[in-house]
């Protein structure tokens, strides 16, 4: 039973409520092992739909959809850092919020540890790309709202692509666009962009964030049990896929820019 904390700031439901369970899941809890990937080849990622400039109130914004992962990102800044001591390099503040309806079991609207771990991963991925020295004493706020999620790795990957697009849309100076790709080690194969189910069945997963323009890696986050050479092959596969994602993002940004130029004329 989920204990609902009474929050005077929101409309509250009953004290306790449980997510519903299916009869069939209790009687057949064991699921067969996936030997062959359904619907996609191991090196295929799901199609990406990317729309910069969805939120006109923000300095820069982007909305990304990768099949069942839907994330909106808004960037405010550089704006003044309040209540913080002087810092000669700018700061990057990443805040992630999962909508209550984004996961199969409803999440409480309060912020919890999972929000912060995704925020930390995104911060690590984007930190090296932004030219922080160009805005001292200021902060760039990156707000991410996850509307629907299909696995934590997919969330981090899509989030960093959206955030990078939004940074470019906002006109903030970056050394390169950051692209991310997640990979799962299934036996001896490497499956790119695993869904939640696939990553649960795998031995381990890896998310690689890189800047294809500079061929450098900004962040690696691996969990699970992998042999070192398997981890390396996951990284190489992810990096190759990031090059393709980079083309898609660059095209989306160019299209959006030419559209806004046309509107201004």
């Amino acid at each position: 039973m989920a204990q609902n904390v009474f929050d005077r700031r929101r409309t509250n439901g009953p004290e306790e409520s449980t997510p519903f369970i299916y009869e069939e899941d209790i009687s057949n809890p064991v699921r067969p092992q996936e030997t062959c990937r359904k619907g996609r080849k191991p090196a295929d990622i799901r199609p990406i739909f990317l729309q910069p400039g969805l939120i006109n109130q923000a300095a820069g914004s982007a909305y990304i959809e990768m099949d069942r992962t839907k994330i909106a990102c808004a960037i405010y800044g550089p704006r003044q850092s309040k209540n913080v001591a002087f810092h000669e390099k700018g700061r990057l503040n990443v805040e992630v919020k999962f909508a209550p309806y984004s996961c199969l079991t409803r999440r409480a609207p309060m912020r919890d540890a999972e929000d912060r771990s995704v925020a930390m991963a995104l911060h690590q991925a984007l930190l090296a790309s932004v030219r922080l020295e160009s805005f001292p004493k200021a902060t760039i706020d990156i707000f991410i709202t996850v509307i629907e999620t299909d696995g934590m790795e997919g969330c981090v990957a899509a989030g960093s692509i959206a955030a990078s697009t939004a940074l470019a849309h906002a006109g903030i100076e970056v050394l390169g666009l950051v692209m991310s790709c997640s990979a799962a080690a299934m036996g001896s194969e490497v499956w790119l962009d695993p869904t939640d189910e696939e990553s649960r069945l795998s031995n381990g997963t890896l998310v690689l964030s890189c800047m294809p323009a500079l061929t450098t890696v900004t962040s690696v986050w691996q969990t699970g049990r992998m042999a070192p050479n398997q981890a390396l092959s996951c990284m190489v596969a992810s990096q190759n896929r990031c090059d393709d994602i980079h083309t898609i993002v660059a095209q989306a940004l160019l299209l959006d820019n030419s559209k806004s130029n046309q509107e201004n004329l």
Partner: peptide, 26 residues
């Protein structure tokens, strides 16, 4: 018999290349 990686994370403001990562893994 074989070593296994149970976790890997980069932390901080910096960039690496994949060959460098390979070396560091070894």
């Amino acid at each position: 018999d074989e070593p296994h990686i149970q976790g890997m994370r980069t932390m901080g403001n910096g960039e690496l290349t994949v060959p460098q990562l390979g070396e560091l893994l070894k």
